[in-house]
């Protein structure tokens, strides 16, 4: 993809983010931070690319370390979000 197509996707995604996040109820702002944390670890994609490639050992080890860090975030982030969301209960009637 050329730079302009990528930029287009980015700008449109910013707008989607703007509207979606304003719709989040304030009661769930902490889970919002936890889950955004987890999904921003999609940076693991870059880490995997680096650690999959042979040839430059330095790059590979940096990549593997990044995979570990991003995995902590992905598993930890989604799990802690799930734990928090499970606590929100409606009044029993």
């Amino acid at each position: 993809m050329d730079f302009i197509s990528i930029l287009t996707i980015f700008v449109l995604a910013c707008f989607i983010g703007y509207y979606v996040v304003w719709a989040v109820t304030p009661a769930l702002h902490t889970p919002l931070m936890a889950v955004t944390n987890a999904i921003s670890s999609v940076i693991i994609v870059g880490a995997l690319v680096a650690s999959a490639a042979a040839g430059v050992p330095g790059a590979k080890w940096l990549g593997l370390l990044a995979v570990v860090l991003a995995s902590i975030n992905i598993f930890g982030g989604f799990a802690v979000t799930a734990r928090m969301l499970a606590m929100y209960k409606k009044k029993e009637r």
């Binding site: 993809m1 730079f3 990528i6 996707i9 980015f10 700008v11 995604a13 910013c14 989607i16 983010g17 703007y18 979606v20 996040v21 304003w22 702002h29 919002l32 931070m33 955004t36 944390n37 999904i39 921003s40 999609v42 940076i43 994609v45 870059g46 690319v49």
Partner: peptide, 22 residues
């Protein structure tokens, strides 16, 4: 942007705006 990866760009934009709005 570096990787030309849409999943990363969409996520980055979402998280970036989320934090900014908060």
């Amino acid at each position: 942007f570096t990787l030309g990866n849409t999943a990363m760009i969409i996520t980055g934009a979402l998280v970036g705006s989320s934090g900014a709005i908060l």
